[in-house]
Amino acid sequence: MTTIISVSNLAKTYASGFQALKGVSLDIREGEILALLGPNGAGKTTLINTICGLVTPSSGTVTVAGHDHLRDYRAARELIGLVPQELSTDMFETVWATVSFSRGLHGKKANPAFIETVLRQLSLWDKKDSKIMTLSGGMKRRVLIAKALAHEPRILFLDEPTAGVDVELRRGMWQVVRQMRDNGVTVILTTHYIEEAEEMADRIGVITNGEIIVVEEKAELMRKLGKKQLMLRLGAALAAIPDALGTYKLELDADGRALTYSYDTRADRTGITTLLNAVRDAGLQVTDIETRQSSLEDIFVDLVRQSQ
């Protein structure tokens, strides 16, 4: 896959002295959905805003389809659509006027048919003549997406697209994002809903304290960093783990009826067979076996904790 945005050693220190980005390097591939996951204040918005030209970087470079985002800003910005985190809208304008304005701002000729397609895709068509101030929060968010798409960008940045949005609307938003990707648009979204990244992303970048600590295919990330657990339900309660099983680092649950064994799926030997043999030799009766894979949330929490 070709790289559409290349960020290299990007740093930003604000006038207050706060270092929001500490030399971030990141390649974004054309056509992917990349989720930037990180706690509040991690630098997600600063990263996006710097790429889009809203924040002046202290050092480092960004190229968008080969165009330097500062020297060749026109060519770079033409390719980008940005949906900001805040619901900043021209509240007295109509949906149609504000979306058409965005298209004009990017130097594109008026194209009512295209604007109509965008508004229909986002279920805003019947609201096209409504003033933005009369719309609900979810609709305003979609107006912002329509504005960002009005100039037919190849890259779409969505900064916390589902913050404060109810579950149903969130699912609707996910559908919209997938549709964008199917249309060939590269989507970069920030979120602190891990569920969202897990659901949507092709790749996940974890950012904390102004640094990207990992960027990985979602499946790979979960395979690499995930742990698996094997739980054995016992026929009779145990007071303590038998000495014969002491080498296996087992955990006994509070009522003594389940043993949990953590193992690494990538290891050549998981130790499951010998464990099961040892359990049988110890004379324990197993009534049920369960395995559990750690979620992205567990991985994320681990990563962030480690980096701190």
Partner: peptide, 17 residues
């Protein structure tokens, strides 16, 4: 006004000098 409402983001991120 766009600075106050935040809509200035659009002007500043557009391909415009």
């Amino acid at each position: 006004f766009p600075r106050f409402t935040g809509t200035i983001y659009e002007i500043l991120s557009a391909p415009i000098s």
